[in-house]
Design a protein around this nucleic acid. Structure first.
Lengths: 209, 209
DNA sequence: GTCTATAGAAGGATAGAC
DNA sequence: GTCTATCCTTCTATAGAC
């Protein structure tokens, strides 16, 4: 593979990523990708054969990029609270640079659930899950979080950081009217989210119900 | 307009809603809508002229249906805590029956931000916003929630109930592995969400930071 | 490896019969 | 009002020259 090859393939890949993430599989046009890459439409087929191939390559890479961001969650040397603060700060900063990723990935998986199965076939989620639980068993007990309620908590964490980006279009209008603006809202969210969520799990012992 | 007219138009509208919500504007095919409605493709054009017209009709109605669910938030006779519990119970139950609505609406607005402007041109958000704040001024002060931090709180509330549906495809796989299953997760979320969020804003006075 | 030209299929829209 | 037949555009994909 020559330097030029790599360059062209990469140019195509980056252009495709941009267009697919922006328009989704159904809305994206090969023509748009070609223009964005500054090359001819048929070159796309030369390098990736079909639109489907190209999309799959882009989708897989994009998911890996996002998944990599979750590695610190499994770091044994961090306390639960450290992880929470780290998670929100890093995660929101990443999404700030890639605001369309959440909607893109959630959508394409909703439309075609098989996609996710290919992605995680090499990951033993159950094992990772148990590891994580054992790692913080003591802290979780302190917070009255059981193995049964942990999914509720974790998904709430994800929701707090991901939702604003998935709903960006709506929130921009809403935040405009309440005087904040989307960018400032996100900037403030980095610390708000952690404080808010730590507060939610703290004193959990009090809530009799 | 005869009975038959109304019936056909309604059949088309319902079929279109189903297909559009499922596949999105770009992914939906007029042919699919016709089949779903049990009629011919050209009838769609007879009643709605173009795909765009049909989509707009469906989108507008769908948004109104969702917006209507937020009315109790502005009810003067409910306390803040009552509203929170009511909101989560009603809202999640509604989404349980319409799981694809959030992703549909958020997406179509992200792809075409103008859509939302048409929808809310008759609503004075700023006014409603101030009304809401004044209504609960005392309670919000107790919780140390200012006019500046209120958007963070409200958007967090929305996130907690909406996100699981928007990310359904991913969560189904995840919840499978952790032993819960999506439906049970949602059922449990109706009460978890309220408890969790009330906990998050309670004792907010303690968090020095 | 990159381009032009074009095939081939699909989808939205319309004409016209009933 | 509903259908069949068909037009026209758009889009993916391929053939073939350079």
């Amino acid at each position: 593979m020559t330097d030029n090859d790599r360059l062209t393939e990469e140019k195509i890949f980056e252009a495709a990523t941009e267009v697919f993430v922006d328009k989704g599989m159904d809305g994206a046009r090969m023509q748009d990708i070609a223009i964005q890459a500054g090359i001819n439409k048929s070159l796309l087929h030369y390098y990736f054969r079909t639109k489907d191939h190209l999309f799959n390559a882009v989708f897989e890479m994009t998911c890996r990029k996002l998944l990599r961001k979750f590695a610190p969650v499994f770091d044994e040397n961090l306390s639960l609270e450290e992880k929470i603060r780290f998670f929100f700060r890093e995660h929101i900063t990443f999404l700030q640079e890639n605001p369309k990723l959440p909607a893109f990935i959630m959508n394409e998986i909703n439309r075609n659930p098989d996609r996710i199965k290919k992605l995680i076939k090499n990951i033993d989620i159950e094992k990772k899950w148990l590891e994580l639980f054992e790692q913080h068993r003591a802290e979780l007990e302190k917070y009255n979080i059981t193995k049964e309620s942990l999914p509720q908590v974790i998904i709430s964490f994800a929701a707090i950081s991901v939702f604003p980006f998935a709903a960006k279009g709506i929130l921009e209008v809403f935040l405009e009217k309440t005087g904040t603006g989307f960018n400032r809202f996100i900037e403030e969210r980095k610390s708000f989210a952690a404080d808010f969520m730590i507060q939610a799990i703290t004193h959990n012992t009090d809530t009799g119900k």
